[in-house]
Simulated scan of single mutants.
Amino acid sequence: MDLLTALRAHRLVAIVRGDDEDASLHTVLTLVEEGVALVEVSLSGRNALGVIAAARAALGPDAPLGAGTVLTEQDAKDAHRAGADFVVTPAVGEGVSAARELGLPVLAGVMTPTDIVTARRLGATALKLFPAEHAGGPGYLRALRGPFPDLPFVPVGGVDIPAARAYFAAGALAVGVGSPLIGDAASGGSRTALRARARDFLAVVAETDAPSTRAAR
């Protein structure tokens, strides 16, 4: 898949991490029904590979579907086998290079300028600024865009509705959102409430235009 184009078009990555396999699957499908096109299933959730495989079967071959918390070569291989067509890592490491060798685009976790340079060298498609709220928030993103003005940053970590607006104003290409969007849906909570939160985040996305960027490689 063309991850950079998808991030520019959709600007929101939903992060599903749950302790109930069925609820996690239904969370993925509900998000897609509501128009959240980019969904990442974290490998730290219960039977995440099974969730990815079931979601792939339900969504068909062309829907974007990511695997998150990809740390190792085996993680990348397992995610690819389960049907993920992009991966997300919490850091720059083995998972990035292994995924690229498999032909999977990578949203690579970075925090520092050194991380950014390393992720670019390894072929990351976009840069997950993580954990964004502890890195310094939108102000830190603005600072990074000084030396890296055209790179695609995706802040993740503590991104609620106000923070999403602030990150977009600071130049984020997209945002990754876990609990402020998912709530307890992936553990059996209300899907009606999930739909409402999805609509709220999609409304924020619709407010702003994506910046011009180039792939981080």
Rank of each mutant, 00 (worst) to 15 (best):
58 A>W: 08
82 A>V: 14
144 L>S: 05
106 V>Q: 06
142 R>M: 15
64 P>A: 09
122 L>Y: 02
58 A>C: 15
133 E>I: 08
146 G>F: 08
73 E>D: 01
126 A>G: 15
98 A>R: 03
67 A>N: 05
145 R>L: 13
147 P>K: 04
90 P>F: 00
135 A>R: 14
43 L>C: 03
147 P>L: 03
103 G>C: 09
77 K>R: 13
138 P>F: 09
53 A>Q: 15
51 V>W: 07
56 R>Q: 11
129 L>S: 10
131 P>C: 06
147 P>Y: 01
142 R>H: 07
148 F>T: 06
98 A>M: 00
102 L>A: 02
88 V>L: 13
49 L>C: 11
144 L>C: 13
79 A>K: 15
140 Y>V: 15
103 G>Y: 11
150 D>H: 15
131 P>M: 06
133 E>G: 09
54 A>Q: 10
114 T>H: 02
123 G>Q: 10
64 P>H: 03
132 A>F: 14
44 S>F: 14
128 K>N: 12
126 A>W: 04
54 A>E: 08
158 G>W: 01
146 G>Q: 10
137 G>Y: 06
111 M>A: 13
61 P>Q: 07
98 A>D: 00
47 N>Q: 08
44 S>L: 14
102 L>H: 13
54 A>G: 13
66 G>A: 12
157 G>H: 01
92 V>D: 09
147 P>W: 00
67 A>P: 09
158 G>N: 01
48 A>P: 04
93 G>E: 04
117 V>D: 06
92 V>L: 00
139 G>A: 13
109 G>C: 03
148 F>P: 04
83 G>C: 15
82 A>Q: 07
144 L>Q: 09
98 A>W: 00
100 R>W: 00
82 A>R: 11
88 V>Q: 07
68 G>P: 03
125 T>V: 08
116 I>A: 03
87 V>S: 12
82 A>C: 13
99 A>C: 05
55 A>H: 07
119 A>L: 01
88 V>F: 09
95 G>N: 08
106 V>L: 14
121 R>Y: 04
86 F>G: 06
103 G>I: 09
144 L>K: 11
140 Y>Q: 08
157 G>D: 02
87 V>D: 03
100 R>G: 05
80 H>Y: 14
70 V>A: 00
132 A>H: 12
138 P>I: 15
45 G>V: 03
156 V>I: 13
48 A>L: 04
106 V>F: 04
55 A>W: 10
134 H>N: 07
108 A>P: 04
96 V>I: 00
76 A>S: 02
43 L>Q: 06
113 P>D: 01
63 A>Y: 01
87 V>G: 12
85 D>A: 08
91 A>W: 06
117 V>C: 07
60 G>C: 10
42 S>R: 11
90 P>Q: 02
120 R>K: 10
90 P>C: 00
157 G>M: 05
85 D>N: 09
57 A>E: 08
109 G>S: 11
76 A>Y: 09
101 E>H: 15
98 A>T: 00
157 G>C: 01
93 G>A: 06
132 A>Y: 06
54 A>Y: 07
74 Q>W: 08
157 G>P: 01
150 D>P: 14
145 R>V: 13
119 A>W: 00
110 V>D: 11
128 K>W: 08
122 L>T: 00
85 D>C: 11
